[in-house]
């Protein structure tokens, strides 16, 4: 009897401890995230000037207008290169390759390894291969190709997971009606996997926006509105880095404002993406 009561109270202590740990972890996360967000937004608003966002860049007015354009171009072009390749690769790996295929195991190993390599290594490779060997120099093209390669493993893995989680009974249903593999993949499997693929794309956008190390080597750091694919420029993140490094106190203010703009841009993009995602999912289901 006594033993039972004791056990019961021990259990109680453990559950209270665990519960409070959960709350503490939640609190710490919320405080630090909200803290960073509000700190950047607060300092950004303090440095706010329209001319710094939309004005023309000069050393007196280190505006980010050109950089916003560059960032958008980088996102679009990089996704345009990386997403189709990744999806087709994932489809091959999950739907077409035989299970004991050695080639596939090599691809898997390569993608997993690539996913863990620091981005500066990709930057160095991109600078040498695309920049020097292919002769693209510091340019949008070099930057896009380099970041696209960085993204491949991420999108491939996530698309693979999304495709694998499509229930086999959909495939069976399609084959059972005499559909070919190609039709099954493109009409049934990929549409069903679309939400997962979209979330991979959104994550990739975040990585393109946040990338600095690889881009400094490949896209370069020239403060100009790019006139073409072979021009150098800065994304917002690179602009932040250069401003902090070279700009002194004023530069730090510009960096904070850029950070605030980045946060707003990412927020808008996430909202937009989830809106599109909801629409795509709905179209398919209705």
């Amino acid at each position: 009897m006594i033993g039972q009561i004791k056990m019961f109270s021990m259990k109680n202590v453990a559950s209270v401890t665990l519960r409070s740990l959960v709350y503490v972890a939640m609190g710490l996360t919320a405080i630090s995230l909200l803290g960073i967000l509000s700190y950047i937004l607060f300092n950004g608003v303090k440095a706010f000037k329209w001319s710094l966002i939309f004005g023309k860049f000069s050393s007196a007015n280190p505006s980010m207008s050109f950089s916003i354009v560059t960032t958008c171009v980088m996102i679009l072009l990089t996704l345009l290169i990386a997403v189709p390749i990744s999806i087709f690769c994932a489809v091959y790996l999950t739907e077409y390759a035989k299970r004991k295929n050695i080639f596939v195991n090599w691809i898997r190993l390569a993608t997993e390894t690539l996913a863990g390599i620091p981005s500066i290594v990709f930057g160095l490779f991109g600078a040498i291969f695309f920049g020097t060997v292919m002769g693209f120099g510091y340019s949008i093209l070099t930057g896009c190709l380099t970041v696209a390669i960085m993204l491949l493993p991420v999108i491939i893995r996530q698309t693979e997971e999304a495709v694998k989680s499509v229930p086999d009974m959909y495939r069976e249903g399609s084959y059972g009606l005499g559909a070919s593999k190609l039709r099954t993949v493109f009409r049934i499997v990929l549409p069903s996997a679309m939400p997962g693929i979209l979330s991979a794309v959104i994550l990739s956008m975040g990585r393109i926006i946040g990338e600095t190390a690889a881009l400094i080597f490949t896209l370069g750091t020239v403060a100009q509105l790019p006139g073409g694919l072979l021009d150098s420029s800065r994304t917002l993140a690179v602009h932040m880095y250069i401003s902090t490094r070279d700009g002194g106190a004023a530069g730090r203010e510009v960096a904070f404002l850029t950070g605030a703009v980045l946060i707003v841009v990412i927020l808008c993009m996430n909202i937009g993406a989830s809106y599109i995602g909801g629409k795509v999912g709905k179209d398919f289901e209705n």
Binding site: G178, S192, F284
Partner: peptide
């Protein structure tokens, strides 16, 4: 399979 149709154990309408 066009001539021999199939219905499965669990209803599997496409989404």
């Amino acid at each position: 399979r066009k001539r021999v149709g199939m219905v499965f154990q669990k209803p599997n309408p496409f989404p």
